[in-house]
Simulated scan of single mutants.
Amino acid sequence: MARPRKFDDDEVIDRAMDAFWTNGYFNTSPAQLAAATGIGKGSLYNAFTSKRDLFDRALTRYDMLGVEFAEQHLSKPVGTREAIAGFLRSLIEADLAGPVRRGCLAVNTSVELAAQDPEIQRAVQRMQEHTITALADRIARGRRDGDVDPDVDPRAYAEFLMNTIVGLRVMAKTNDAPMLHRIIDSALAGL
């Protein structure tokens, strides 16, 4: 008879996500995962089958948290530029506030794994698509409300902003807030 689990899957996934986010997939050892989660390697692999399964679940969790974060910022009852600026500034402020400047787990994963792993490539594209869709919806709303130029293509501008987000998250690893804020201001000037 199997013993009942004495841990919460979501909490374990969150802790594993932090380990992967800080170290990368390949540089996170099973011992590091056990230490980060507080669960023995055997129990960890019994619960999640493999390091890759745990990583996939961590990416799914990161995506869900990202969707919630975007919704929280982009649904605010303010102008479109202000809502998007708040979203972008909050992303980089979180990056700058940590003890280690980790950037974005999706961007880091794309750089580390996407070229050799089609499943990872698709997972990162799904995450990016969620952000692009949220941005495009907010820009389209801004066009309807009259605070975005009617000639702006919401999808194309959202794709441009997604590219800007990726760049900001990488640059936040080595640059200061004033420079990153200037980039955000420049990116939003076309709205």
Rank of each mutant, 00 (worst) to 15 (best):
M1K: 03
R5M: 01
R5G: 01
K6P: 00
F7A: 07
D8L: 03
D8K: 03
D10P: 00
V12D: 02
I13M: 02
R15A: 15
A16N: 03
A16C: 05
A19S: 15
T22A: 13
G24W: 06
Y25G: 02
F26C: 07
A31C: 09
Q32T: 10
L33W: 07
A34D: 06
A35F: 08
A35S: 14
A36C: 07
G38D: 12
G42K: 08
S43I: 07
Y45R: 06
A47Q: 05
A47K: 01
T49G: 03
T49P: 05
S50T: 09
F55E: 05
F55H: 04
D56S: 04
A58P: 06
A58T: 06
A58H: 04
L59N: 00
T60H: 03
T60K: 05
R61L: 06
M64L: 09
G66V: 01
V67D: 02
V67G: 00
E68V: 05
E68P: 02
A70L: 02
H73K: 07
H73T: 08
S75Q: 13
K76A: 13
P77W: 07
P77S: 13
P77A: 09
G79Q: 15
R81H: 13
A83Q: 12
I84C: 11
G86Y: 00
F87L: 15
F87V: 06
F87S: 09
R89K: 10
R89P: 01
R89L: 11
I92V: 15
I92G: 08
I92H: 03
E93H: 04
D95K: 02
D95F: 02
A97L: 01
G98N: 07
P99M: 08
P99V: 10
P99L: 08
V100H: 07
G103P: 02
N108V: 06
N108I: 04
T109W: 00
T109A: 02
E112T: 01
Q121E: 05
R122E: 06
V124P: 00
V124K: 01
Q125K: 04
Q125D: 08
M127S: 13
M127F: 09
Q128K: 04
Q128L: 03
D137N: 14
R138Y: 12
I139Y: 13
I139D: 09
G142M: 12
R144W: 10
D147Y: 15
V148R: 12
D149V: 11
P150C: 09
R155G: 05
R155D: 10
F160R: 13
F160C: 06
F160D: 11
L161H: 14
L161Y: 15
T164S: 15
I165P: 00
V166T: 14
V166E: 14
L168Y: 10
L168H: 09
R169D: 07
R169V: 11
V170F: 10
M171I: 08
K173W: 10
K173Q: 15
N175P: 01
N175K: 13
D176G: 06
A177C: 04
P178G: 08
P178C: 09
L180G: 05
L180C: 08
R182E: 13
R182C: 05
R182D: 12
R182H: 11
R182F: 12
I183N: 12
I184L: 05
S186K: 05
G190E: 13
G190K: 11
